[in-house]
Write a protein that binds this DNA or RNA. Sequence first.
DNA 1: CGACCTGTTGAGGCTCATCAATAGGCGTGG
DNA 2: CCACGCCTATTGATGAGCCTCAACAGGTCG
Lengths: 282, 282
Amino acid sequence: MTVVLSVRYRTQSGTLHCTRPRHGWSGCAKFFMASTDFLGPASCHVCALRCQPAFRPHSARELRFIGGMKKQHLAFAAGEPLIAEGQNSRVLYTLYEGWALRFRMLANGTRQVLDFLLPGDLIGLPATFPGGSRASIVALTPITVCVLDGAVIANLVRGHPEYADALLRDQALERERADTRLTLLGRTGASERIGYLLLELRDRLRMRGLFPGRSVMLPVQRSDLADSVGLSRVHVTRAMRELRERNLADLSDRVLTIPNAQNLARHSGYPLGKPLAVQTLL
Amino acid sequence: MTVVLSVRYRTQSGTLHCTRPRHGWSGCAKFFMASTDFLGPASCHVCALRCQPAFRPHSARELRFIGGMKKQHLAFAAGEPLIAEGQNSRVLYTLYEGWALRFRMLANGTRQVLDFLLPGDLIGLPATFPGGSRASIVALTPITVCVLDGAVIANLVRGHPEYADALLRDQALERERADTRLTLLGRTGASERIGYLLLELRDRLRMRGLFPGRSVMLPVQRSDLADSVGLSRVHVTRAMRELRERNLADLSDRVLTIPNAQNLARHSGYPLGKPLAVQTLL
DNA sequence: CGACCTGTTGAGGCTCATCAATAGGCGTGG
DNA sequence: CCACGCCTATTGATGAGCCTCAACAGGTCG
């Protein structure tokens, strides 16, 4: 079987085309990176993320433990892979700044985006188990991550049961979101899927203090959206035109604007106003 | 907006039709129920499921703990709900005999089947967390379940760290399967989805000793399959006809036959032969 | 036997994919 | 500086895949 990875062709006017996507976020650090430098393990106490409503508060003792498991702070360029398919890893990451993508590649060369990872999300837990994960992680923007010793889970379970409990709850929450995505793909149309995704991103960003107004910069291309909601790039464009013409959402020049979240929520079946669950920040 | 729940109509020949599905498994207990009676909490030591390769072995101490958390053994009729959407529950179930369905209802009256639950699967963990789950559980056949005190999780995390570890691994495994389903719906066609689903069911049943030969009885209707893989009932029929005509899989009179698993696996991208992960049986 | 349900098949239509063309951004090298 | 390579976004045309409606055969149960 031949796997087509990239097709190049020239149009009548002489323009050269190529189907292979690229990650073009090398120049966007200023939008997705905080300007503060990382202060080392002890800085968990003053971590800018921890005061955000997305994360449950921690005691000083808990912070000491987490700080102790923190090995270093790393930066990745946009497009750089963090974890490859099936890879086994002895470390976990906490995404600190920037966006990442969790995805799977298929034998026919197509990609399914499984999730958009935002600051505070835990990366690489499945990769610490034998067999690893069939999913890969790639940086969508320039990112920085906190590197945690993979033993953190075992130590948590042993010495910090309240943490382990919270982690299980986080996993259950993730599964709820996965169920939602499946339901969207299985039982709703194109514009509903996209609308739901945008609202979910909006709420997740809001809880992290990253969506102050009614507009926000999204480091997301049409193909990322398409691979996430199970559509083609072209059809994503069309569905977004529908949303724009109905004044529900506009994503132009990478700036997302949602004029009226209520309307978009009604259109896409998003449960707006439901209290959002907090998650554990490791 | 009018939500249509059921449509009845009469054809030219006088036949009356109705779009509302039913659960018609009341007479099938003999196929999905073991004949042995439940022996009470102490019987975890002699549980017929535990010796199956799907589940990791337990020490006598672990079994004592689990047995102590076991409150009773319950039976549900086919079609009976175990957990309703959003419901909060103080108990967990371990499915012991029979099949169950995890699903979500949408506002437009359609259903998305999230998973088929088989003997040994844990039911209701998300329902123990505040807010519950948006998914519902219903018995697909007559079933029996072991009822566990909801405090089992907290106690596990506190007193049995190796169990808590295993539970986290189970959750990660579930997420892998969820990722797979999402990828199937987003990026593959009808017959691939169905083929994959059937092979996955086959392997899960095999590891539980419930698929001895190359044929097995599946308590699954077209509409269950359809709601699971994101297709209409009618199109499931057509896709299964294709599979039958290509001699890949046959599901007639509720008996599934896979003449050659290799061929079906090649057709649907199923990773046959990959060692299957064991899970924890509570 | 009739009420009710499931499964199958055909006809027609809608949604979405694919192919193709074009405009335009961004970086690079002449 | 402009030309060019390379990429993304948008739009039109066409077709494939899947849905919906309809009809009917056959099963099960009272």
